[in-house]
Write a protein that binds this DNA or RNA. Structure first.
Length: 421
RNA sequence: GUGAGUGUAGCUCAACUGGUUAGAGCACUGGACUGUGGCUCCAGGGGUUGAGGGUUCAAAUCCCUUCACUCACCCCA
């Protein structure tokens, strides 16, 4: 590998890619704000210890970590939740509860890449802190679903699988299974379907029959029923499947957990999250105890889902085209009027119009081609007509002559901008 | 980290299975076209065939190594 190649798993964002990324970010912000969440951000580099503390030392294998010049062990953040817990523990007194925070940022992991899993990606994180009521779980799920709806995805395209860790911990408690075995057993349940049935049975031991029965019949609980009812009240129940096989790998979840998938099941999880009521206390060494819940949604898998869903893809392409287009292309037909044109270009830009023009003498035909390529809806031609400007509607191809002093008004009228002088 | 597959122009692919100077479409630049855009025609730029080594009179083609990508495993933030 030469120094001219990018590192594996990292991405260049050419204009088209950047447009996609910005489209995703815009929808994320729009919907999160709609739910009353406020944006925040943390550092991209954290002490490696922060992640060890939460997830154990095995996680270091997957961290993008190194020793900095001050001999500190640091890691490129693999996720936001530990940072959030630290920040909340330090600052929670400054805010009314519950906190409803979201963040859009870049995250890293040192793993071999494959589809939907790169070494860097962007993630939206949404968290509610300081609320134990199930209403918060429902609200968070509704937000997660509405985020996908904002991309044009429907209940036929995506599904939220919801489970409850308490369902299993209650189950194990009732059968007098010692608490120190719970995490282990939850991992086995999490792997159900990915691992052979024999191996699962072996690991479950005497609980095998019971657990398999629950897994095949599907679990049920009053809490999960209330959750689905809450979503049904909002007309979102069709997006939801109760699936107690979902446990999630991370050990810090304590209650409702969920994952979002494409209905076709071709891709990795689009998003995942749940309730983590003990994490802030644990990470703050018991200084602060706050119930919390949240989820993360990555840009990579989401982008793939949009790509593979025709109506969502069309919506994105239209939005990107509209965002990218310029308003006006200025055609300089006679170079002696370049200065006149530039004076008016400046005025137009000051008024907020997106204006482009040729930097060097260019044939008129090419200038109109550039207007076309830039998506301009209006062309202004500066030439022998001066002090009049020829205004061409590029959609209808109609032309008219406007005195240059009246140009701004004429343009404003064309774009339906209220008179603001 | 393990295993398999794939690497030819910016993109999609050719190259008669080892045989002249590696081609085409799209894209890009310019011209036909000295004041009018989605056509058309013509021309041009662009490649150490991912990289390094080996076999051979001769390698994009066969062998080895390495790097990258894809898929599966692993893991899932």
């Amino acid at each position: 590998m030469t120094s001219m190649q990018k590192l594996p798993g990292f991405r260049d964002f050419l204009p088209d890619d950047c447009a996609v990324r910005n489209y995703i970010f815009a929808r994320w912000r729009e919907v999160a704000r709609r739910y009353g969440f406020v944006e925040w951000e943390g550092p991209i580099l954290e002490p490696t210890e922060l992640y060890k503390k939460k997830s154990g030392s095995e996680i270091v294998d997957q961290l993008f970590n190194f020793t900095d010049k001050g001999e500190r062990e640091v890691a490129m953040r693999p996720e936001l939740t530990p940072t959030l817990a630290r920040v909340v523990a330090a600052h929670e007194r400054e805010f009314k509860k519950p906190l409803k925070w979201f963040s859009i940022g870049r995250f890293f992991r040192f793993e071999k890449q494959q589809r939907g899993r790169l070494r860097e990606h962007f993630q939206l994180n949404c968290d509610i802190i300081g609320e134990t009521a199930l209403a918060a779980d429902i609200e968070l799920l509704a937000l997660c679903i509405d985020l996908l709806r904002a991309f044009g995805l429907t209940e036929n395209d995506v599904v939220v699988r919801i489970s409850d860790r308490e369902f299993w911990t209650d189950f194990l408690r009732e059968r007098n299974v010692p608490a120190d075995r719970w995490d282990n057993l939850l991992q086995v349940i999490d792997k159900f379907g990915r691992e052979s049935r024999e191996k699962t049975i072996e690991k479950l031991g005497e609980l095998a029959d019971l657990v398999l029965k629950v897994l095949s019949e599907g679990g049920k609980s009053e809490k999960l029923d209330r959750l689905v009812d809450g979503l049904r009240d909002r007309g979102l129940a069709e997006f939801v499947d109760i699936d107690v096989r979902i446990v999630r790998g991370l050990a810090y979840y304590t209650g409702i957990v969920f994952e979002l998938f494409d209905r076709a099941g071709n891709l990795r999880a689009i998003a995942g999250g749940g309730r983590y009521d003990n994490l802030i206390q644990q990470l703050s060494d018991d200084a602060v105890s706050m119930p919390a819940l949240g989820f993360a949604m990555g840009d990579v898998v989401l982008g793939e889902v949009v790509n593979e869903t025709p109506h969502a893809l069309k919506q994105m392409q239209q939005a990107i085209a509209a965002e990218r287009k310029i308003d006006i292309y200025v055609v300089i037909a006679k170079e002696k009027h370049r200065a006149d044109a530039l004076a008016q270009i400046q005025q137009l830009r000051d008024h907020g119009y997106r204006v482009d023009y040729p930097l060097t003498p260019t044939k008129v035909a090419r200038q109109f081609q550039a207007a076309e390529d830039g998506g301009a809806s209006l062309a202004l031609l500066y030439g022998d007509e001066w002090p009049q400007v020829k205004v061409k509607n590029l959609t209808t191809r109609e032309e008219s002559l406007i005195p240059n002093k009246a140009l701004l008004d004429s343009v404003a009228k064309f774009f339906n901008v209220p008179d603001s002088a």
